[in-house]
Design a protein around this nucleic acid. Sequence first.
DNA 1: TCCATAATTTGAACTCAATACAAATTTATA
DNA 2: TATAAATTTGTATTGAGTTCAAATTATGGA
Lengths: 140, 140
Amino acid sequence: MENLINILEDANIKPTIERLSILNYLDRNHNHPTASMIFDEVETKIPTISKTTVYNSLKLFIENGIVTPLYITGSEIRYDFTTKPHHHFFCENCGKIFDLVVDCPIFSKKHFQGHLIRQQHGYFRGICKDCLEKEAKEHH
Amino acid sequence: MENLINILEDANIKPTIERLSILNYLDRNHNHPTASMIFDEVETKIPTISKTTVYNSLKLFIENGIVTPLYITGSEIRYDFTTKPHHHFFCENCGKIFDLVVDCPIFSKKHFQGHLIRQQHGYFRGICKDCLEKEAKEHH
DNA sequence: TCCATAATTTGAACTCAATACAAATTTATA
DNA sequence: TATAAATTTGTATTGAGTTCAAATTATGGA
């Protein structure tokens, strides 16, 4: 938790109890949650917290580069505690989003064909390994 | 237009005047439009068309693989007349989405780390070449 | 400690893309 | 032509995300 305070302070964000709790959730859950998922869990610890605070905090985190928004499902934004760049896989069956470590030669470039690159996203859609195996078992 | 009829029939979609008009728009405009942009233009030719028909048609096109939905901006879905796989660049300044031709070694794989791949998306965010040049000119 | 100011949080109202659904219309089939 | 099926339409609804002013909390000086 001390570590999370430092992360916020390094990003010039005052570490309020709400922000810490949200960041703590993201730190413990690398499952690319929605704002609702975050709210539901944090609410059990801070019953007075509002959804607006969750959105406000996430916006702050994004603006300061410690969280990355993922536009993958098309229905809602997923939030990713920014670590090192990686790809994502979205299972159209179970809805889970997995991290994929891909050796991508374009990653890390700051300029490309004259454009300034700030963020890079690679994501795949399909059926995940787990769902494929379950399916195979059912048809046995 | 004859060509578009074939595309729909090959996808087992009855080529109604509404669907043809929507596909015709996507064929003429490779600027990754929103459903609203499509509706606004098609409405000038078919004044009775409804937004629901636009959404229904796009859904049909997607299900049959002739259109790809892009979840890039986070606020609305963009539609891409499916041709060959390519990456996208989203300019955070002007909002335009460009096609990027990238030599990507992962593209075309049908399986990856045990997952079945149906779609692959690579997109970049930043400031586009045009906006960078305008900015440079202003600061002269 | 007290007070004034600033920062943060809250909750209700609102926006808007997308969906649901039943009625109306058009098209296909017997 | 009549009946059924497919398509379109328009209204109502959903729900993630935003707006904004009031309430609360934190900060810093006297």
